[in-house]
Write a protein that binds this DNA or RNA. Sequence first.
DNA 1: TAAATTCCTATGGGATTACTAGGAATATGG
DNA 2: CCATATTCCTAGTAATCCCATAGGAATTTA
Lengths: 154, 154
Amino acid sequence: MFQVPAKTQYAIRALAHLARSGGDSAARVALAQNISAKYLEGILNQLKLAGIVTSDRGRGGGYRLTRPASEIPMIEIVAAMEGELKPVECVDDSSVCSRGAFCMPRKFWQGLKDSVESYLKSVNLADLAEEPLITICGTGKNKNPTKTEAKGAR
Amino acid sequence: MFQVPAKTQYAIRALAHLARSGGDSAARVALAQNISAKYLEGILNQLKLAGIVTSDRGRGGGYRLTRPASEIPMIEIVAAMEGELKPVECVDDSSVCSRGAFCMPRKFWQGLKDSVESYLKSVNLADLAEEPLITICGTGKNKNPTKTEAKGAR
DNA sequence: TAAATTCCTATGGGATTACTAGGAATATGG
DNA sequence: CCATATTCCTAGTAATCCCATAGGAATTTA
Ligand code: FES
Ligand code: FES
């Protein structure tokens, strides 16, 4: 349970790659991380809209982090892919429930949310990417790895 | 994100109801908690297989907790519905990764898992059900509430 | 023996996920 | 200046999962 979607795992792997390489094209990141290239394009674009990466179009272009990896908390990445943390609907919305702020179940779900949130705030991208990595954790579900040739890094 | 499935929310509400009533039929629990009756039957059965409730068949039968609510940690309920906590495949399985125990990404996912797990272990069903409740948190997705008449409790 | 109940299996519709496909827009290097 | 590398945009799709629904067999009791 609580399985993290492939999309989020891909995002993390891609960002870790960018952190180490200093910037790269979507195709090369996909090849290196064994992610479907076209699918990754969309993910990277989403990360751009969230202000985590920036991009240069055209030949020689690609993606790079907007900030040092140490200034990108993991919760920001997760939020960019999946939106806000919300285990049940009425969390953060006291108008849903007649018991308002005194609702025990709400406190329970709030506690769960806080627990995850504070953990995700305590770790940043640099913590994950700092060591020389061979692969990055989580294989996702890609069964058709990119075959495209990608010669040379930037 | 991290949305808790309706099934799990239903299970929790049903169990809280049983904790307060001391035992009831699936149909009456469904009515009281606004859950699809037939769907709830399956859920209660699953909770039975997990050893959280027990049941009596036939007229006058129903479900009741196997233990005091204070001895049922929330993690047991969640595990009964969704299986073990596993954000990514390679968590708990060092054979997946060439970096073995030194893999930073794994430590990250392990940390997330531990964080959720320890919280869910720290709360029990009595904590949720102790107060006189009107409704129980989280509405789920049931749009066709049970219409069946259910007269009188046990 | 009728009614109430759990227990079992099968099916379906809707939403989400994880891609796939095609190409327009844009920038660069030679 | 143009072939090429790249991002960016939109649409479609197959598979999976979730949330039930349906029907009825087995069991127990009043
Ligand atoms: S790849 Fe998952 S533990 Fe290293
Ligand atoms: S029902 Fe969700 S807060 Fe009370």
